[in-house]
Design a protein around this nucleic acid. Structure first.
Lengths: 390, 390
DNA sequence: ATGTAGGCGCTACGCCGACAA
DNA sequence: TTGTCGGCGTAGCGCCTACAT
């Protein structure tokens, strides 16, 4: 297994991909993104994966793609491998996961007492700033928000005039970037000068993109970027048609499910509308141990521009299949919702049960007789009598 | 149909991809690349397509990808659509084709008297130069080979001192590039000065890459690039695993063949080892109307660095399936060859029949009783009794 | 607290012929 | 014929402060 929570790999083997710094990866991926631990059981939604491919290829699923009637809308899998990657050209982060569908017997087995591995988490000491026109112009350097600089950067010697130091930061590819950090001007401010423009042009940053600096517990400075959501960089892969990609994704899942063999998927957290590999426990709890109904109010977390999270509230307006013909009886984004704020026009009109936090006055769980959704028990799901962990 | 042989599309619709200049596209693709005309019948080799995907993803076909026993190694198709594309970031050229497998009855139908459309061809008045270190450095401009400049560029007024003019050229995306063209120095030479470095940095050209200038019959100057074959830019798609891509390509072809429905493929001439969509007539002539045997000598065309063609000679050393288990009875690269020149170490050890030109002293065709290869008539191929056109 | 602009020193971009391969 | 270099003038990069928000 290659999931790493321990910083840099000093000597990557020839031809082998480096193990990325997982703190930095998570920071670039966003505060709401989590990767299930290796060895745990997860639910995989081909439909959600299909949405990601559609988003990447900027093309809807075509109607003439054949159905895979034997492919269930959700597959219970063991997560064998998780590796974090970053595009060499764009620094776009994505994850590669190896999944193995479990057969009926395996699904009945109780969970391991403690699931292997611990998912790596967001770093605590970091800041994220959206670049201004001045930050990206050739006219000057980078203006560091004061609190951010004092929290994240090594302290300056304020007895010197002006206080200054050289910062060294590493990006996802373990490249070193050096910046002159100076505290000057009237009023005083933190600036990155020498070295900054090289970084901007090398990463091809423009106003609106974001940079983030992390100060980790090993006193290393890490440096990541997040590009603004530009209008869909239409990038026909020039390798495979989007139809063939859809087919490939479905065929891979169907073949793996039929033979209980491993298959590999990619998950791009910033391109994908929602996570489509969910911890099994989270899924079961949301679907079978939470009572929801039309009219119920809920909260849901969203990421803000400053890389923090915010709660939005809304009301459930309906519960039904997103795609009744192709993906019948799926819980994938089966909840239709209305959002409280008028500024919520951008927010999705459909969510999945495990993404929301229903507001209720009575205890939700443990419940000996949970009020289930009125939908048939999906085939391929285990009976959960022996399940622990929630 | 969108195949264009008529220059620029002045007003591309919103959201619709522009029709690229086909002269320029062909020049960038290389002198040996041809696209069959729309409406014609072609043979599609999933195996060859698979090689292209393997090359793009830099990964061999994995053994655990399921076989598609019902998928023939070659599909006879009608070519419904051909569009030329160029990657917005890299200018890499590729073609998109819509193919429709023909059923047994359709394959028996005689050819149309004259097949629709005429394939666009290489431009005649152009030059291609591999960039030197001086060409790409920031120290100076671009040194234009003398004959090339005099043949391709508009004539200078040599009465002026020094003779100079402004050149305007358009690339595949219809972007304008302006260069100062001057004839100076001792000895005199043609140079591109002002404007050149902007082009080099915008296209990210390095020494070893090539540029090509075309002077077309509408007195327009066109400008293309060809990047050097760098050591495989490992570019994991971050969308789909290479296994799923392989599966998708096979599933798309199999589904289309089973339902006689259209499917779409991409062909990247500079990444693909060989063309895998071949005119049916060319295929039939090579496979069924040409006698080849072990020990026979042949010629084959290759592209040179200067974008011209050269013949290499060799000897047939064997005829057998490239992949007997997965693609039995396929003519795809079924000929094992040895090359005459010792410098031919880079040349492929296997070729397809339609790529080579056997050297023989007796007339090859028309032949009432052609000496066929000793291999069974592949299923799914028509009988060719009524075939004209060769 | 921080975005933008004016001022201006100096680097390196880029135009030139010399020279050699 | 054409690749590379030394020479130089100058555009614009980038460091500074002032000022506005």
């Amino acid at each position: 297994m290659r999931l790493s929570t321990s910083g840099f790999n000093p000597q990557p083997h020839e031809g082998e991909k480096r193990v990325l710094n997982s703190e930095l990866w998570h920071a670039c991926a966003g505060p709401l993104v989590s990767l299930p631990p290796v060895g745990s059981r997860v639910v995989y939604f081909p439909q959600g994966h299909s949405e990601q491919v559609a988003a990447s290829t900027n093309k809807e699923v075509d109607a003439h793609i054949p159905n895979y009637p034997s492919l269930h809308p959700q597959l219970i899998c063991q997560l064998h491998n998780v590796t974090m990657h970053a595009d060499v050209e764009t620094d776009e982060v994505y994850a590669q996961m190896t999944l193995q569908p479990l057969n009926a017997q395996e699904q009945k087995d109780p969970y391991l007492p403690a699931e292997l591995g611990v998912p790596s988490r967001q770093p605590t000491n970091y800041f994220c700033k959206t670049l201004t026109a001045s930050d990206t112009s050739t006219h000057g350097g980078f203006s560091v928000p004061r609190r951010a600089a004092e929290k994240v950067f090594p302290p300056l010697d304020y007895t010197q005039q002006p206080p200054a130091q050289e910062l060294m930061a590493r990006d996802l590819h373990d490249n070193e970037w050096k910046f002159r950090h100076i505290f000057r001007g009237q009023p005083k401010r933190h600036l990155l000068t020498t070295g900054w423009s090289v970084f901007v042009s090398a990463k091809r940053l423009v106003a609106g993109d974001s940079v983030l600096f992390i100060w980790n517990d090993k006193n290393q400075l890490l440096l990541g970027i997040r590009r603004a959501n530009r209008p869909q960089t239409v990038m026909p892969s020039s390798v495979l048609s989007s139809d063939s990609m859809h087919l490939g994704l479905l065929a891979a899942a169907a073949h793996a499910a039929a033979t209980n063999s491993r298959f590999t998927i990619f998950y791009n957290p910033r391109a994908s509308p929602s996570e489509f590999v969910i911890p099994l426990a989270k899924y079961v709890k949301a679907v079978y141990h939470t009572r929801v109904s039309v009219g119920m109010r809920f909260r849901m977390l969203f990421e803000t521009e400053e890389s923090s999270v915010r709660r939005y509230m809304g009301t459930i307006t309906g519960i039904c299949d997103l795609d009744p013909t192709r993906w019948a009886n799926s819980h994938w984004r089966s909840v239709k919702v209305g959002w409280d704020e008028s500024t919520a026009g951008e927010r999705q009109p459909r969510v999945s049960l495990w993404e929301i936090e229903p507001l209720t006055t009575f205890p939700m769980y443990p419940s000996p007789f949970p009020l289930r959704l009125k939908r048939p028990w999906p085939p391929g799901l285990p009976s959960f009598h022996g399940i622990k962990n929630f």
